[in-house]
Design a protein around this nucleic acid. Structure first.
Length: 758
DNA sequence: ATACCGCATGGAC
DNA sequence: AGTCCATGCGGTA
């Protein structure tokens, strides 16, 4: 087959050079001039008139795939549907209990669903961008179980653009894909340019600017994807083996699960999610995520339709209970959906000076842009103050796998005063699907928050969020910080600041309302729950019914609640809707109540258990574990007798003794060697190197520790048993030593313990 | 001396 | 046993 330019970029004359994409087409060499389904490279299959007609009428598979495998019957009407190829992918939906349903049946169920509530028409297409895309609507043809692409003129977006990459594995590429993908590249660039222009229309919008920056901005490093699977191989699926065709051809359109049912936005049918946590998220992500730009670059479709196989480890699943929660703004009835993607407790190295944060692999591959180069792509995120950060999302090849991480997070970490043990970086996907219907992706954005508890977009695109620190209760310092943030978050054109607490004056009534809504939640009246963002913030706060016990740690008073926040959320705010409520409830309850409980208990109990690293276990008395979280630690005076300072003093005394012994030993050794050989220095180094200890190790161990390298974990009874220099082969010991030495060094610096006069 | 980079290592699961 | 990931650590700027 000859190369063919994409349908959107081709000129009338270019049509004559292309041929029908359908391999089964009896008139293979017939000129083609109508677009068909979307290919993996982003282009559209060019079909001859006859094949295109068959495709548009939903008869393509009936005609050409009769003998192919993958035919199944609609669970409701029994109609045969081909589930084994991409052509018919939009024609059916997966059923929770297994099997498929044709669109007609699926739509019927949606329209009569107990929680079905079409979005207010006035909010469809309300954005300037949306208006530009009104001619790009999809004409679902239920009678033929297919969708009819709109008549396109010039660059445009079609339904198949909304497919993620996961639904395209089944399709065979033409043999001339290299040249074809070259066209695709141009098309993709063109699309990016188009999107960039469109986005810039609303460039004062955070969300849009994020998208623009990420995908089409001048600094965008996203490699142009010529072939989705070639440039971004299915990282997970390669290991997991083939999937059933029906699952591969996941008919994602603009899926959303807001209330456990198929959502219907305007004329648009959104795909039902299955009940796996990841797919749960996945479907939310696809809720507007499948723009032409993002569909190739974002990992929103990695076989998430295989329950149990690709679930994010519970440890990383968001503990925020507001999964898929629909927030409604009472005054204007706009709706937003908040979907936390994952969260991670910052490790020591994450919060350290390296400025890198390791990302859970599956989370990265599921939720972040696909990257094929180790350089990765820039990722623009917003923090709780609305401040924009750009990290580099990269990976290393590690043990035949990949290790994903964010680079350049130091300023953000420092800005947030985060440290090991804090819950960090929940990704929240703000989707405006119910507001903007099928064009939700226009306002799609990915936000990093240190813990996004709530987020909302009203017509002014304002955000609400909170974050969780290692110590659940906020110290006065943090409280002040939040207040400061609140003030600094007032945007010029935004009437209200981003607020963690209800504004003054409204607090009482707001909290009262919130309390009543809490009760509503408790009663299970979830589907009707509408929250203003202030009320939403109320849920973030501890329940007014709870009386904290005040504990004092290092002079700082903390509020400690008997019921930890996850109890709160998991019991009160499982916003499960509709028929899948029980399943979801069970799932979420299990997650939140068990996992979150374990984790939160660790967080609540003590900073000691905030580090995941095995070297800092409960009961560890190293300086890292002893010290209080940054920001909550008071300044330590010279005569401070707190545990931390006592430890530091004790360690220091030990070190001084050790230093004396070392110096004495060195002098003796030197004298001894000088007696044996005049070239003592060279030979000593040689000897050290031969023994497997590098010169660096030698320096590290042989030289007396400087103040900055003070080993606060030095244990004389152990260390003196193995006099330096240590062999490099004692990896474990060395690792421990360096680890704690490094940590304690930074801890030492952080604590500002001044022993200069001692 | 320090920061950065990227691969290596090893404990946990 | 394989994978993940926190951290080590050597090389380089």
């Amino acid at each position: 087959m000859l190369p063919f330019p994409s349908s959107s970029s081709m000129t009338p004359s270019s049509y004559s050079a292309r041929f029908c994409f359908n391999r089964e087409c009896p008139d293979f060499n017939r000129e083609c001039y109508r677009p068909g389904w979307r290919l993996r490279n982003g282009d559209f299959a060019d079909l001859c008139n006859r094949c295109a007609s068959a495709y548009e009428q939903g008869r393509f598979c009936d005609i050409f795939h009769q003998r192919a495998s993958g035919w199944r019957c609609c669970e409701s009407c029994g109609k045969r549907i081909h589930c084994g190829c991409i052509v018919s992918a939009p024609a059916f939906m997966l059923v929770d209990a297994g099997g498929i349903e044709c669109l007609t049946c699926a739509r019927k169920k949606v329209s009569v669903g107990p929680n079905f509530r079409p979005p207010p028409p006035s909010f469809l297409f309300q954005s300037p961008i949306s208006e530009k895309f009104q001619d790009l609507s999809i004409d679902w043809n239920s009678s033929t179980r297919s969708y009819r692409p709109p008549n396109l003129s010039g660059p445009s977006i079609r339904q198949s653009d909304l497919h993620n990459r996961g639904d395209c594995y089944e399709f065979n590429q033409p043999t001339s894909k290299d040249k074809a993908t070259a066209y695709s590249t141009e098309k993709h660039r063109g699309m990016n340019d188009l999107m960039g222009k469109l986005m810039s229309v609303n460039s004062n919008n955070h969300t849009n600017s994020i998208l623009y920056n990420q995908k089409a901005g001048p600094n965008c490093k996203v490699p142009t994807c010529q072939n989705v699977n070639a440039a971004y191989p299915p990282l997970i699926s390669l290991k997991e083996g083939p999937l059933v065709g029906a699952q591969r051809a996941f008919p994602v359109t603009t899926p959303v699960e807001t209330n456990g049912h198929l959502g219907l936005g305007g004329r648009y049918l959104w795909h039902k999610a299955n009940s796996s946590p990841l797919s749960h998220l996945h479907n939310d992500l696809n809720n507007g995520a499948d723009s032409p730009l993002e569909s190739k670059n974002w990992n929103f479709g990695i076989h998430l339709d295989t329950p149990g196989k690709y679930q994010v480890v519970p440890r990383y699943s968001p503990k925020v209970p507001y999964k898929n929660q629909v927030l409604q703004n009472l005054p204007n009835e706009s709706v937003s959906v908040v979907t936390p993607l994952f969260e991670k407790i910052l490790s020591v190295s994450d919060a350290g000076r390296v400025g890198r944060m390791v990302l859970p692999k599956k989370c990265a591959e599921a939720f972040l842009p696909q990257i094929s180069q180790t350089d990765g792509v820039p990722l623009t995120v917003h923090d709780s103050t609305g401040k924009e950060w750009t990290f580099q999302f990269r990976f290393w090849v590690n043990n035949n796998s990949r290790m994903y991480f964010l680079e350049g997070i130091t300023p953000c970490i420092q800005s947030m005063q985060l440290q090991a043990g804090d819950t960090g970086m929940s990704l929240v996907f703000l989707c405006h699907c119910l507001v903007l219907g099928p064009y939700a992706w226009e306002l799609k954005s990915i936000h990093f928050f240190f813990l996004v508890i709530f987020s909302r977009v009203d017509p002014e695109k304002k955000l609400i969020m909170g974050f969780r620190k290692a110590s659940v209760a906020q110290s006065s310092v943090q409280e002040t910080e939040l207040n400061n943030n609140r003030e600094s978050c007032t945007n010029g054109d935004q009437a209200e600041p981003i607020d963690i607490h209800p504004p003054n004056g409204k607090k009482k009534s707001s909290m009262t309302t919130t309390r009543s809504k809490r009760q509503k939640v408790e009663k299970g009246e979830l589907s009707a729950l509408k929250l203003t963002w202030e009320e939403a913030q109320g849920f973030i706060l501890p329940s007014p019914n709870l009386t904290p016990s005040i504990i004092t740690i290092e002079g700082i008073e903390f509020e400690e609640y008997e019921v930890h926040p996850y109890d709160y959320f998991s019991t009160n705010l499982h916003l499960c809707f509709g028929s899948t409520c029980s399943a979801n409830k069970g799932l979420l309850a299990e997650q939140d109540d068990e996992e979150a409980k374990d984790e939160a208990e660790g967080l609540l109990m003590s900073p000691k258990s905030t580090s995941k690293h095995p070297r800092h276990r409960n009961g560890c008395t190293c300086i890292v574990c002893l010290q209080s979280p940054s920001g909550s630690s008071p300044k330590h005076g010279r005569r401070c007798s707190c545990t931390v300072c006592d430890t530091v003093r004790r360690r220091r005394e030990t070190l001084l003794q050790r230093k004396k012994k070392q110096q004495q030993s060195e002098i003796e050794n030197k004298a001894h060697k000088e007696m044996e050989s005049p070239n003592s220095d060279e030979e000593r180094h040689q000897s050290v190197n031969n023994s497997g200890t590098t010169s660096k190790d030698y320096e590290r161990h042989a030289s007396p520790p400087s103040k900055a390298q003070i080993d606060l974990n030095f244990q004389p009874e152990k260390d003196e048993e193995s006099p330096l220099p240590r062999s490099k082969t004692t990896t474990k010991d060395k690792s421990l030593h360096h680890d704690e030495a490094r940590s304690s060094s930074s801890a030492h610096n952080k604590l500002h313990v001044d022993f200069a006069d001692s």
